[in-house]
Design a protein around this nucleic acid. Sequence first.
DNA 1: ACCTGAACACCGTTCAAGT
DNA 2: ACCTGAACACCGTTCAAGT
Lengths: 197, 197
Amino acid sequence: MPAKRPPIPLSRERIIEAALHIADSQGLRRLTMRRLGDALQVEAMAIYHHLPRGKDALMDALAEHVTAVHVEPGGDWRETAREWCRASRAALREHPGVLALALTKPPKGQAAMAVREQTEQLAEAGLPDAAQAVRALRAYVFGAVAVEVQQSGWAEPAGPEDDAEPWLPPSRGGGSAAADADFERGLDALLAGLTRS
Amino acid sequence: MPAKRPPIPLSRERIIEAALHIADSQGLRRLTMRRLGDALQVEAMAIYHHLPRGKDALMDALAEHVTAVHVEPGGDWRETAREWCRASRAALREHPGVLALALTKPPKGQAAMAVREQTEQLAEAGLPDAAQAVRALRAYVFGAVAVEVQQSGWAEPAGPEDDAEPWLPPSRGGGSAAADADFERGLDALLAGLTRS
DNA sequence: ACCTGAACACCGTTCAAGT
DNA sequence: ACCTGAACACCGTTCAAGT
C-alpha cells in the first residue's frame, strides 16, 4: 500500500499557493472552498481555521499577494519608479487568474504598505507630488497588464483538458518581446510627463 | 387589492439593466440568477429563455454593455481619440460593479466591434500605427478608472442598508474634479507620446 | 412563445464532535 | 490545536410541464 500521506500542516501560505494555482489554471469562478480543500488533501472546513473570514479573506489575501511588491531604491527616482513598475507588471502577469481582484480591490495590509513605501521612496528621492505620481504609475501598470492579458486570450474557453501549466507562454497577439518594448516605451513617456508637471 | 402587476415581457435589455443595478449596488458576488429573477418579478429560470448560455452569457453581456462605446469622428485624430477615452471612462465609472469584468474579459460582439471601429477611425484620420495606439489608449483608460474606483472606496463593506442608489457621488480621496483634471492631463501626455513615435 | 415547479449537483459556512 | 461530519441555506442549470 502507498505510504500514508505525511500530514504537512496546513498554513496560510500553502492555502494561498494552492488557490493561486487553481485560479490561474481554471479561472476564479472555479476556485471553490471545496476544490481548494481537495487540492490541499483536506476537508474544506479546515481552511476556515487558517482564514477565519472564509472566502472573503481568501480573495483579499490573493489580491494582496499579487499586488504587494518591493524593490530596493537604487539610482534616481526615475529608476526606482521603473523598477516598481516592472516588478508590479511581472507579479500581475504571473497570476492572470486573480487580475480582476488585484485591479479592483483597494490595497489592504501588505499591499497598502507597499503603496505607502513606494510613495515615500519617491518623495525622499525628491519627487514633488509623489502621491499623485504613484497613482499615475499604478494606473499605467494596471492598464498595461489588463490589455496584455486580454490580448493573450486568457479567460477564453480553454476547456478542462489543460490543467497542469500555470499559464501558456504569453506569445500571442504580438508576443512578449513586443509587449515588453511597448511597456518600456510607454513607461518612459509617462516618466517624462511626470517630470515636467 | 392592488392591480395585478402588468406582465411587462422580459427582454435581454431589461435583464441587463436589472443585473447592472444589482452589481453596482450590492457587488458582483451578490448578483445571482435567483436574485435577478426576483428583481424582474419572474422565476430565475425564465431568464434562460432570453440568455441561453445562462450566467456566463449574462457576464459577457454586462462586460459588453459597459465597454461598447461609440463617438462621431469630428476634428483631427487627437480629438477623436480624446472623445473615445472620455466616453469609455464615463461608461466604466458609471458601473463600478462590473469593472472587474470589463477590464478582464477580452472584447466580444459589440465591444470588439467598437475597438475595430475606433482603430479604423484613427487610421483613416492618418495615424500610422492605429492598432497600437488603440491598445495604448484602452490601457490608459482602464488603468485610470481602476485606480479611481479603488480610491473611491467602492467594493468596501458598505453593508446591506444602502440599497437604492447606483453609487455614491465620487467625491472622496481627491474628488471628481481633481480626477477629471488628472485624467485629461495624462491623456494629453499620452497623445503627445503617440505623435512622436 | 414564454414562463413555472420540481429536481439535481454543487456552493459557503456553522457548529458540535473527534483526535 | 487542528481537523472532520453532518447540516443548513443558497446557488446554477435541466427538463418536463403548464398557459
